[in-house]
């Protein structure tokens, strides 16, 4: 489904990512872990075409994404939940969802389905999104990305700043999407919140992939200790 091969990304002339490679298959959850500034967000932005200068290959369903204009990428079925939610804060909940629906020309049926998944948003449909609580904003960011009915979902620190009940709701949503065959590329700092849903973990440090482990491997205590060590916990 998603193939990232020798990805090198730059901001201006500064090299941020150094030959990152991984594969993500349908219905799998791949988690990128690492300290702040390691380059995890840049990997997601590179896939979304939001980094000016990249080398290497990014394939999605055998189609090349490298060099494709950013606004074409979501139309291919890739949903994105950016770090810090990045809602259109002066637009209402409904208008934020409308932007998601415009992307692949999805209609009312999709909106109803999404609102049934997140009934809290249905209650606040006409509220300005910037006035929602942190948890509700995260729900809306996820709902907006789901409006495009993605085959691949990129989630950047979805549990950041959330209380435990909201974290478990996000985790359950990830599991539900996984069951539906959606592939998920997840950037996280909270290992304990995410390991139960991940099929593979990759550790990123200073823009390089330094370690990877499958779900079977990280159930092993020694591997888990190693993962915690890498991200400084």
């Amino acid at each position: 489904m998603l193939v990232v091969d020798n990805l090198v990304s730059y901001y201006a002339n500064i090299k941020i990512l150094n030959e990152i490679s991984f594969n993500l298959n349908q219905g799998q959850v791949l988690c990128l872990l690492g300290r702040n500034g390691a380059g995890k967000t840049t990997i997601l932005k590179s896939i979304m075409g939001l980094v000016d200068h990249t080398n290497g290959l990014i394939l999605f369903n055998d189609e090349k994404l490298s060099g494709v204009s950013a606004h074409f990428i979501p139309k291919k079925g890739i949903g994105y939940v950016p770090q810090g939610r990045r809602l259109f804060s002066e637009l209402t909940v409904e208008e934020n969802l409308e932007i998601g629906l415009l992307t692949r020309k999805k209609g009312e049926k999709t909106k109803e389905k999404i609102l049934n998944m997140f009934p809290k948003l249905k209650e606040r449909i006409n509220q300005i999104s910037g006035t929602l609580s942190g948890g509700e904003q995260q729900m809306l960011a996820l709902a907006r990305a789901l409006c495009i009915e993605p085959n691949l979902l990129l989630l950047d620190e979805p549990t950041e700043g959330l209380q435990p009940s909201m974290i478990s709701l996000i985790r359950n949503s990830i599991l539900e999407l996984k069951k539906q065959g959606v592939s998920i590329l997840l950037v996280e700092q909270r290992v304990e919140a995410i390991l139960p849903v991940a099929d593979e973990v990759i550790i990123i440090e200073s823009g390089s992939k330094i370690f990877s482990a499958s779900s079977k491997e990280f159930k092993n205590k020694a591997t888990l200790k190693k993962i915690y060590g890498f991200i400084g916990l």
């Binding site: 939001l50 259109f88 932007i99």
Partner: peptide, 24 residues
Amino acid sequence: TKFGLILRATQLDSETAQAFGIPI
């Protein structure tokens, strides 16, 4: 209108607007 919604979204956050298919 949808056109107005696209303009307002672009005004608020052009990068995120691109990530939702808006050709900025």
